[in-house]
């Protein structure tokens, strides 16, 4: 099973990659190898953080109404966005991953909430095989 590993604030978080629903998006992100970026907090939606990737994936393969735990790719900004808690989304997005473990989401929420207070910390991203 392929997973997206996100490391920031010294902690690891994992999202299951939707290789059947969004194969091209997953492949594009995997092709980037291990990379780092700086996190930002969403301004219009809530309980969402994002970061730019060095990847272009222009096709919206798996348009899904965003929910807690969804990991999506926003093509116009080459960005991965993580919806980490209950929210009212802006609409449909290209979902390519999901964080299903409630305990993970609880831990992620503690870290992600602080991004609104201080943006710009570094996040490390990689696709791993489990």
């Amino acid at each position: 099973m392929k997973k997206l590993k996100l490391t920031f604030h010294g902690k690891d978080f994992y999202a299951r990659l939707l290789t059947e629903e969004a194969p091209n998006t997953v492949a594009a992100i995997e092709s980037a190898g291990v990379f780092e970026s700086r996190v930002g907090y969403a301004k219009l939606a809530n309980r969402e953080f994002f970061f730019q990737t060095p990847v272009f994936a222009d096709e919206t393969e798996n348009p899904t109404y965003s929910e807690k735990g969804h990991v999506i790719f926003y093509g116009p900004r080459q960005s991965i966005c993580v919806f980490y808690d209950e929210l009212v989304p802006l609409g449909y997005s290209n979902q390519f991953g999901i964080i299903e473990d409630e305990k993970q989401l609880e831990e992620l929420r503690k870290e992600a909430d602080t991004i609104w207070e201080k943006q710009g910390d570094i996040i490390r991203v990689e696709v791993i095989e489990e």
Partner: peptide, 17 residues
């Protein structure tokens, strides 16, 4: 892609909270 990078730096320059 360059403009997106600059956009995110502009975003980081604003003390939003």
């Amino acid at each position: 892609q360059y403009l997106v990078r600059m956009f995110y730096w502009a975003d980081l320059s604003m003390p939003w909270k």
